[in-house]
Amino acid sequence: MRVSLALPMDASAVARRFIIAIGEMILGEAQYGCVEYRVDRANLRRIAEAERTLDYGEGQILVRVSAFAFTANNVTYGAFGDEMAYWRFYPTEDGFGIIPVWGFAEVIRSRCTEIPVGERLYGYWPMASHAVLTPTRVRDHDFVEGSAHRAALPPAYNLYLRWSGLGRTDDERTYMLFRPLFVTSFLIDDWLAEQSWFGAEAVILTSASSKTALGLARSLSVHEGAPPVIALTSRRNADFVQQTGYYDRVVTYDDLAPLDALDSAAIVDFAGDGALRASLHEQLGDRLRHDCVVGASHWEDRGPQQRLPGPAPTFFFAPAHLVERMKSWGADAFNQRLDAAWDGFIASTKAWLSFKEARGGSEIVAAYTRVVDGGVDPASGEIFHPV
C-alpha cells in the first residue's frame, strides 16, 4: 500500500515527526514515510520537498538522518552529478536528483543482526529525513553499504562509521562540515608534493574561501618545501581569506594583474568557472605548469570545454588517490597522517569558524538556496536538520 503524506513547507519539527510517525503506523513495519529534498538536475536552484515510502527488508537498517553539513562541495556533487555518478547514490524520479551529504543518523529499525537499533552512524546520506542501508563487511567500527545499485560506485562513499563505538571526541558539527572536505585537501596536498609542485613558483587556489580550499591552503602553509600559496577570491571575501593566515597573498577576480609577476604557477581550481579558467590560461600562458580541477563552486559558469593556452585542465578525483594511498601507506599509517593534519587544521579554525543551523522545511530550502547562490558567509558552516 502506498500512502501520500504531504508535509507543508512551514510545518514545525514536532508536527513533521508526528506526521511521519502516523505514516509508519499506516504503512506497517516494513515501510516508512520519508521526506526528501529533490533538486532539478538541469537547474540546481530548483529544490522541492517530497514524500516517499521507504521499504526495508532482511539484512537492512532504517535510519533517521539527524543532521548533515551543506557546502559548496555538495553543490559540486550536483554540478558533476551525471559525469561523476553522484545522482546514482540515492536515485529518484527522472529529471530530479538527491544531492548526497555527509552527516549523522540513528538506527531506528534493524533487520541486520550486527547493527542494533539506537546506534549512531556517520556517513554519506541523502538530503532526506530517513534512509535504508544494507550493511555488509561489518566490523567493530565501520561497515560497507552493500546495495546493488552502489556496488560500482567509489568505495570511499560506501563506508559508514559506527560512531557510537569509536570514542572520538570531535565536535560533530565540525566533523561533518570539514572531515570529507579535509580528506580531499589532504590528498591534494600529498599529490602536489608527489609531483614536486610541478616545478611551480606558486600555487594558486581559486574559490579560495571555500572550505576545501581553506583546508588545502592550511596544509600547504605548513608543508615543508611547498611553494607560496596565492588566494584567488571575490573582493567581498578577500578580507576573510587574508585573516585566516593560510595564504601568502590574496588576489581578487576583478584584478588578476598581480599574477603577471609570477615566473611559473600551478592552479588548483575549486571554482569551475570557464571564463575565469580561460583568463588565467591566457594570462599565464607557458608559465602555467598545471591546472588541477577539483570543484565547481561557480557551477553556473562552467561553460563549454575549449582549447586553452598551456596545459589542459585535469580533473582530480580524490577517491581514486585515496585508494592508491591506502595501498601504498596502509590504512593505519594513512589514518595516522590524516588525523595529525586534521588536528592542526581544526585547531586553526577555532579563531574564525561559526555555525548556522536550519531545521526542516522552509529553513532548509532557504539555506540550500543561500549556498547554491554563493551567499554564505565563508566563516560559517551550514548544518541542516531534516526532521
Rank of each mutant, 00 (worst) to 15 (best):
V39A: 13
A231H: 05
T244A: 10
H281P: 03
P258I: 13
R168C: 12
H130E: 10
E49G: 05
A85I: 08
V132L: 11
G199W: 14
A202S: 13
V65C: 05
T136R: 13
F96Q: 10
F334D: 04
R52K: 12
L288C: 05
S380N: 08
T184M: 03
D260P: 09
H298E: 02
R235I: 05
V101N: 10
S129M: 09
S129K: 02
G103Q: 06
A358C: 09
Q195R: 15
W329Q: 13
Q243N: 14
Y56F: 15
W197R: 10
A148S: 14
H281Q: 11
P319M: 08
A13S: 13
A152P: 05
P91D: 13
L338Y: 15
P227M: 08
M326I: 00
R109D: 13
E93G: 04
D301I: 00
F182D: 07
G103I: 07
K327F: 03
D291F: 15
G360Y: 03
P309A: 09
R88S: 14
H141I: 07
S110M: 00
D142K: 00
L153R: 10
Y157G: 05
D239A: 15
Q195N: 15
A21D: 10
T76I: 01
G78N: 08
A261V: 15
A231Y: 03
M1K: 03
M84V: 08
D286W: 08
L44G: 00
R16K: 11
I383R: 05
N158I: 01
E36G: 04
M25V: 14
S147P: 05
F143R: 00
T206Y: 01
E201R: 11
F68L: 12
R173E: 10
T71S: 06
G165D: 12
Q242K: 14
G97F: 01
K211I: 05
A217L: 04
I26C: 07
R249Q: 15
V222R: 15
G81S: 09
M326S: 04
V387F: 07
E29R: 14
E114A: 10
A318M: 12
A217D: 02
M326V: 00
S110K: 01
A341L: 07
E300L: 02
C112I: 05
R64P: 03
R88V: 06
G123S: 09
T233N: 02
